[in-house]
Simulated scan of single mutants.
Amino acid sequence: MSENHDRMRVNEIDLLRFIAVIMVILFHYGFRAYAADDYIKMDYTLIAPIARYGRFGVELFFIISGFVILMTADRGGFGTFVVSRASRLYPAFWVCCTITFLVKLFFGGDRFPTSIIQYLKNMTMFGNRLNSSSVDGVYWSLYYEINFYIIISLILLAGKIHRINRILWFWLFLTPIVNYFKWDILRENLVTQYSVYFIAGASYFLIWKHGISLERCIMIVLCWAYALMLLEPEVAFFNIHYHTDTNIWVTKALVTSYFVAMMFIVLRKTGSFGQLRWVFLGGLTYPAYLLHQHVGYIIINRLYPMLNMHVVFWGMVFFMLLVSFVIHQFIEKPSSRWMKHSLTRLSERVASLWFASKKRLAGTLSQ
């Protein structure tokens, strides 16, 4: 497979990202906020029976991350990967975290408290490791994502990315063991609650790049089977917490559809549909995910019941997508380019100084 072909954008991934974020937004506005924790006063029963399944859109995000992050790692070394991820994640996160903090500070009241210390810790994207609660509830998934990035970074740093297949097998082997014995440190650092989705996504990338093989298919099937097992206690807890009756088989079918869709994509079986460019929708995904929850709840509480609930609900969905477009187009894209350029120059400078110091040390020792 040619280098140019490897570097093609996978158009369908952008569409899947957008579908996942819409699922999550509908879940938060149409079910989660009213069902538990007293976040909003508006009970939008029209879509609640469907919207509750949007909680499991996050699993689709994790599969996509497994695919995209391994693709990124495959294109360069440790420094390139770190620069790519930092410039991709931080600009939009800083903007959305700041907006959320300010909205909560001035309009959140007792229901949505915040503090400057919480905000500053969250701005590092390592708030959980700094013993801080999140400025917004959606950040929980970012912590799993970042741990996955750290795993890939360490593999790159060790120069073992060419052994990624063996590493994925070892990770998959450890996952049920760590979960069974509840080794908390390993569960956190190896993200074993959701690792099968990252592993599956990475395996899909290997199929996309190198072609299908029995070994890769077996790995994906094992990931899928264990994912369905993990859904059972998760759905049981979900039903208790939200006082609902989410159907486990519908949830399993939904997650299964993610695995099937990804297989069609990596085998390039989407036909002319795969030629369509969804980059615009994909660009909305990250800021929309980061910004919509607590800011949306606060605005909904301000507007309802003063306005009709249908107007409030769908207006808020549209408003969040519009704001996300503005952030992506006019802040995230230029900031990411500038940050990537600056970090690349910095990393090159650091590398140059490192090699120069090693050369001087070698010369000194040889005298």
Rank of each mutant, 00 (worst) to 15 (best):
43 D>G: 03
102 L>I: 14
359 K>G: 02
68 V>M: 15
215 E>D: 14
285 T>G: 11
279 V>T: 13
44 Y>G: 00
118 Q>C: 04
127 G>P: 05
211 G>S: 08
170 F>H: 01
118 Q>W: 01
305 P>M: 06
263 M>V: 03
367 Q>G: 08
185 I>K: 14
284 L>C: 12
255 V>E: 05
264 F>M: 11
109 G>D: 12
196 V>I: 11
161 I>N: 08
316 M>L: 11
94 W>M: 10
123 M>R: 04
115 S>P: 03
115 S>F: 04
279 V>Q: 08
133 S>E: 13
118 Q>I: 09
29 Y>M: 01
169 W>G: 05
273 F>I: 12
247 N>W: 01
63 I>T: 12
30 G>F: 02
62 F>K: 01
16 L>D: 09
76 G>P: 04
326 V>Q: 11
272 S>T: 10
266 V>A: 08
20 A>L: 03
70 L>N: 07
170 F>L: 15
272 S>K: 15
259 F>P: 03
303 L>M: 12
211 G>V: 12
346 L>A: 11
306 M>V: 12
166 R>I: 11
351 A>L: 09
10 V>L: 07
345 R>C: 09
8 M>R: 14
106 F>G: 10
364 T>Q: 15
200 A>H: 05
192 T>K: 09
18 F>G: 04
249 W>E: 14
190 L>R: 06
159 G>V: 08
224 W>L: 13
230 L>I: 07
64 I>Q: 05
332 E>C: 09
335 S>R: 02
134 S>P: 06
326 V>E: 07
353 L>F: 10
40 I>R: 02
112 F>T: 03
64 I>G: 00
309 M>Q: 14
345 R>H: 14
331 I>R: 09
68 V>C: 12
51 A>N: 02
316 M>Y: 02
146 I>N: 04
5 H>Q: 14
310 H>Q: 07
331 I>W: 13
56 F>M: 00
176 P>W: 13
65 S>D: 06
14 D>A: 07
356 A>H: 07
77 G>N: 11
364 T>M: 10
118 Q>F: 03
126 F>D: 05
80 T>Y: 10
71 M>F: 12
186 L>T: 11
72 T>P: 06
146 I>G: 01
316 M>A: 09
88 R>M: 09
241 H>T: 00
210 H>W: 08
274 G>S: 10
114 T>D: 14
321 L>A: 11
222 L>V: 15
220 I>R: 10
337 R>C: 04
32 R>W: 00
197 Y>W: 05
173 F>K: 03
367 Q>A: 15
135 V>I: 15
358 K>L: 13
14 D>W: 06
142 L>G: 03
321 L>V: 09
237 F>M: 09
157 L>F: 12
1 M>T: 09
181 F>I: 15
4 N>K: 12
246 T>K: 00
178 V>Q: 12
98 T>V: 09
175 T>K: 11
284 L>W: 03
235 V>I: 15
341 H>D: 13
103 V>Y: 04
364 T>R: 14
52 R>D: 00
58 V>K: 00
127 G>L: 04
367 Q>V: 14
111 R>S: 01
